[in-house]
Simulated scan of single mutants.
Amino acid sequence: MPATLAIGDFSRATHLSVKTLRYYHRVGLLTPADVDADTGYRWYTADQIPTAQVIRRFRDLDMPVDHIHAVLRAPDLYTRNKLISEHLANLEQTLAQTQSAVASLRDLLAGPTAAAPVSHRRATATMTAAVTTVVDKGDFLPWYQGALAELHATIEARGMRATGPAGGLYDGELFTDERGQATVFVPTEAEIPRLGRVEPLVVPAAELAVIEHPGSTADLDRAYGTLATYVASHELRLDGPIREYYLIGRQDTADDKQWRTEVCWPIFSTGADD
């Protein structure tokens, strides 16, 4: 029979506080070997120490309790390893996002850099295949990636081809209220038949102030800031969705240093072709 430990001794053995052990018992993650019916005092066995150590390390890696519960109760090694691998992949993605944010902040604190030039462009009406929805800002990136992949797959399946870079139309509410209408589109040579979320859309003609942002979209706000300052100072602003064109993006290369994004602000027609 394995040796038993009172909850205090088990706490010292595992470096898990008594409060934490009580919580793990309450949620069914680590159940004591015995609970005194009269006093409610918890007893653990030495055999439970390795399980407690594994739980502690998973929590050090920010794995949610319900995920740990699933790992510990996985029916086989394959399922267990898959769950762990998925969490590690999420950690790596979070780390990459943190590193990108740190690099962007260091660059910002280093002082202003030469701003990219702002130009004017008169965009003509363009036939596209598009996906449109109302999306929360926090869900935008996975929605965008899924929509863009669906567009390219549908265009290819139809035997059609893209005639220009993908783009997006984003209503002001997406920025001001963190929820608004977003459209991702790919220009096509002809009208595409509606299929699932993909539908034909004529992106209207517009006069635009344009700035090109090189690199990751993590600091795309800097391009937005420069563009907004230009439009405001020249008193050119028009209401309407912001446009983005993905000249080189994640669909072309995983190296975000090579990405090129145009941000386009609708403006009054000036008659200039610069």
Rank of each mutant, 00 (worst) to 15 (best):
R73D: 11
G225S: 08
G164N: 10
L30V: 11
V198N: 05
D252K: 04
E191T: 02
E150C: 02
L208H: 04
E156N: 13
P117W: 00
H234Q: 15
T79G: 09
A190F: 14
G28P: 04
S100V: 05
F58I: 08
A74L: 03
D274A: 06
W143D: 04
T79D: 13
S104P: 00
T176G: 03
Q93I: 06
D38P: 06
A89F: 04
Y246E: 02
E189Y: 09
D38C: 07
V102I: 13
V102L: 12
A223F: 00
A3W: 07
V27I: 15
H120P: 00
G8C: 00
S216M: 07
V184F: 01
A254D: 15
H25I: 03
T124Q: 15
P50L: 13
A130C: 12
I248N: 04
P142M: 02
L29F: 02
W259Q: 02
S233V: 11
F58H: 09
P117S: 08
V18N: 10
D256A: 07
E86A: 12
T31S: 15
I49K: 05
D221W: 13
H120R: 06
E212W: 00
R121M: 08
V186I: 13
D34V: 11
Y23C: 04
T94Q: 15
K82Y: 14
S104N: 08
V184S: 01
L5G: 02
H152R: 08
T133Q: 10
A125I: 09
G111C: 00
A147H: 01
S11I: 06
Q258V: 01
S100P: 05
L220N: 06
Q258T: 05
D255V: 14
E212S: 15
T39L: 03
D9I: 05
R122D: 09
T176D: 09
D239N: 11
V202H: 04
K257P: 03
P204L: 04
T270Y: 12
Q251K: 09
D107E: 12
L141Q: 14
L61Q: 15
L247T: 10
R12L: 04
P32A: 05
P32W: 01
E156V: 15
D255M: 10
P165A: 10
Y144P: 00
D36A: 04
Y78M: 13
T4P: 10
E150G: 02
L21F: 02
T183G: 04
G138Q: 09
A162E: 09
V71Y: 05
F10I: 01
W43Y: 14
V202L: 12
D252M: 01
L77Y: 12
T45N: 09
A6R: 11
D38W: 14
I155W: 00
T253F: 12
T113V: 14
L88F: 12
R80M: 15
Q93G: 12
D221V: 14
E173F: 06
Y44R: 01
V263I: 15
G196M: 11
T163P: 03
V118Y: 07
L141R: 15
D221S: 15
P32Q: 07
M1C: 13
V184G: 01
H67N: 10
D221N: 14
I7L: 00
A70I: 07
D139L: 05
G215C: 05
P142T: 02
A232C: 11
R59T: 06
D255K: 10
E86D: 13
